[in-house]
Design a protein around this nucleic acid. Structure first.
Length: 619
RNA sequence: GCGCCGGUGGUCCAGUGGUAGGACAUUGGCUUCCCAAGCCAAUAGCCCGGGUUCGACUCCCGGCCGGCGCACCA
């Protein structure tokens, strides 16, 4: 918070004190989300979305789908949440998701054993060392607790895998794991998915689904849980041939926090456009830049406050070794807008999405570990004619001479010809190695020659660009950024300023008087009309009218329809009043027009301000 | 996982070694009302297990849950 700043503006922009507590309280009371299984004491890291929260989340997901699947022309799949062990051996999660913890006997601090070894010895990649060896390494190098200095030698190293393990089938079955990310479900099926894309790059596959991580200590409510929803897009591209439609988002404004600025003393945001950032090399990958632009638009559409939002680049140490560039979308959750912060370090910033250029890492890994091919064939514009070294070993001679190893020797000859064709030229004998043994083969038996071959194209392992969204955190952000307080008719009001398109309920309908049968019956007709039009509608006749408005304000219902006596008098069609949440302004609209007009403002094809020019204001 | 603090109706809190009270919310009635109005009434609670005690929501121990700090967050 900057000094000397005026705090007199107590309007809708004044941010809410202790926002986290306010949201938790509201979430429980109004049914957005709450800790699960409270009847049995609860378990940390699991949350249930109540009626409001589930609807909000559903709308956010559907908006994501519309943006990242439908509008970008991608395909969505739904993979299982459990996969057998080999999948995670290939993906690296079995090793990489393993934490080795050693606890200090004196102060009780837990430390990553592999980090201790890496920090205090010349050993790198200590993560892959087996536990018993790690224990002896700690003793050997006489490692001490970085916190209190106590000796760690002799302490047990505990293994902690962040994946939930299960067994598939009866008895011990085969080991399986709940997926720690949805992405592998797409990568594993790539050989089939590329067929559906008619073997043409680029193409994108999306998935929205649950993922599971057995976090040591889940915190911050819904922001970090053990079961959560991801929305991921895996964009498969030919690294040499494919370019994103960058012009679509070239002018989109973004707030960037590059690694260089994070490392600088007085680092600042770079306020720029996607186009400029890519041109200047601030964003290294044009694909990543493209998706940042698409995402920026989406976040704005679902009501993320751009003044509490940024894209932060991963520092080199944070980045997976195969990822050439990686940016996170981050939202601020403490109620501190960028315009009021002293600098980028201010505020409570949380990762809500990651955008990574993952190269061919994922597909190559699965190609290595499985029997499938994870490539796409790229045809040349014109077939190329090339001279290729060819060997055709004479097996009728090699067989009798080398017995069981003859086939391996033939393979070795093939490899040698491809790698070092000169070894065959003018040679009487060639030497190959099989299982560590050297074999000399008469060059004539190899039948080496140069052959002219026609190549129609190459097999390319696609690179993957991955925008990956945490849905629950996004929902929390939307709630946090929508929370507003103001004063209406001298009464304090709390309301959720959700975008109409994501609001859990679109319209509240009330009869002004609950004991007037005429009003009640028309109100019920209106409810039917609006529901038939596809709107999510709630009916309320309990308590006075102001109370009912406030109930809907608190769950962010953007429009309320009140059926009053005045509207059913006279000769013309019945009319009702429509009240807009944020301004509390009211218009009188004829019932026959109601469904169409409200559908328009809820889906965003019209605005309430447009309606204001067409209909009579109330009061 | 370690440390500190906390856990009382739906929510937010007060309180006591002899089992509890407020505010708001909710429901019904009256009022017939366009922004949490008024009146009457109702529903609803001491996180779990063990110990101490004649008696524990209260004190002690353990667990679970939450907040904060450390660690962790591919």
């Amino acid at each position: 918070m900057s000094e000397g700043e005026s705090t007199e503006s107590a309007g809708a922009d004044a941010h809410v004190e202790d926002e986290g507590a306010a949201i938790t309280e509201l979430a429980k009371r109004r049914g957005f989300f709450f800790g699960s299984n409270e009847a049995y004491g609860g378990v940390a890291g699991f949350y249930t979305f109540g009626p409001q929260g589930a609807a909000l989340k559903r709308n956010v997901e559907s908006s994501w789908r519309d943006c990242f699947t439908v509008r970008l022309g991608n395909e969505e799949i739904e993979a299982p949440t459990i996969a057998p062990e080999p999948v995670f051996e290939a993906s690296g999660h079995l090793d990489g998701f393993d934490d080795m913890l050693v606890e200090c006997p004196e102060c009780g601090e837990s430390h990553r054993a592999d980090h201790l070894i890496e920090d205090n010895t010349d050993i790198e990649e200590a993560e892959s060392i087996p536990i018993p060896e790690v224990e002896s390494l700690i003793a050997e190098h006489d490692l001490h607790c970085p916190n209190c200095g106590a000796e760690l030698s002799g302490q047990a190293v505990e293994e902690f895998n962040l994946m939930f393990e299960t067994s598939i089938g009866p008895g011990s079955g085969q080991p399986g794991y709940l997926r720690p990310e949805t992405a592998q479900g797409i990568f594993v099926e790539f050989p089939r998915l590329k067929e559906y894309a008619r073997n043409k790059l680029p193409f994108g596959v999306t998935q929205i689904g649950r993922a599971y991580r057995n976090e040591i200590s889940p915190r911050k409510g819904i922001v970090r849980t053990r079961e959560f929803t991801q929305a991921e897009l895996e964009q498969f591209v030919d690294p040499e041939a494919d370019e994103p439609p960058l012009d679509d988002v070239r002018d989109v404004h973004v707030r960037l926090y590059p690694a260089t600025e994070q490392e600088a003393e007085d680092g600042e945001y770079v306020e720029t456009t996607v186009g400029e950032a890519v041109d200047d090399g601030v964003i290294a990958s044009d694909w990543v830049g493209y998706f940042l632009g698409v995402a920026q638009g989406w976040y704005e559409a679902i009501g993320v406050d751009t003044d509490r939002f940024r894209f932060r680049q991963h520092l080199s140490g944070e980045r997976a070794h195969y990822a050439s560039d990686c940016w996170d979308a981050e939202s601020e959750l403490d109620g501190v807008p960028v315009s009021e912060a002293d600098g980028p370090a201010d505020g409570d910033w949380n990762e809500i999405a990651g955008f990574a250029y993952r190269s061919d890492y994922d597909l190559s890994k699965h190609a290595e570990h499985s029997d499938e091919s994870f490539t796409v064939f790229r045809q040349y514009d014109e077939p190329k004619t090339v001279d290729r070294p060819v060997v055709e070993p004479d097996m009728s001679q090699l067989g009798p001479e080398f017995g069981g190893t003859a086939a391996d020797i033939a393979d070795a000859l093939q490899t040698l010809a491809a790698e070092d064709p000169d070894a065959f030229v003018d040679a009487d004998e060639v030497e190959v190695e099989v299982d560590g043994e050297q074999y000399r083969v008469d060059a004539d038996l190899a039948n080496f020659r140069w052959e002219e071959q026609t190549e129609a194209g190459v097999h390319v392992t696609p690179h993957v660009v991955e925008p990956s969204f945490g849905v629950d955190r996004t929902v929390y952000t939307v709630i946090s950024h929508a929370l507003e307080r103001d004063v209406v008719a001298d009464e304090k009001r709390t309301y959720m300023a959700f975008e109409p398109s994501v609001a859990p309920t679109a319209v509240g309908v009330f009869p002004l008087l609950s004991n007037d049968e005429e009003l009640v019956s028309l109100a019920n007709e209106v409810v039917d009309d609006l529901r038939t039009a596809g709107l999510s509608v709630t009916y309320d006749d309990s308590g006075n009218i102001g109370r009912r408005y406030r109930r809907q304000d608190e769950v962010g219902t953007p429009f309320c329809v009140t059926v009053d006596q005045e509207g059913i008098e006279g000769d013309g069609p019945d009319t009702v009043t429509v009240r807009e949440r944020d301004s509390t302004a009211q218009l009188r609209i004829p019932v026959p027009r109601l469904a169409e007009e409200l559908s328009g403002v809820v889906t965003g094809s019209r605005t309430f301000d447009e309606l204001r020019t067409e209909y009579e204001a109330v009061e």
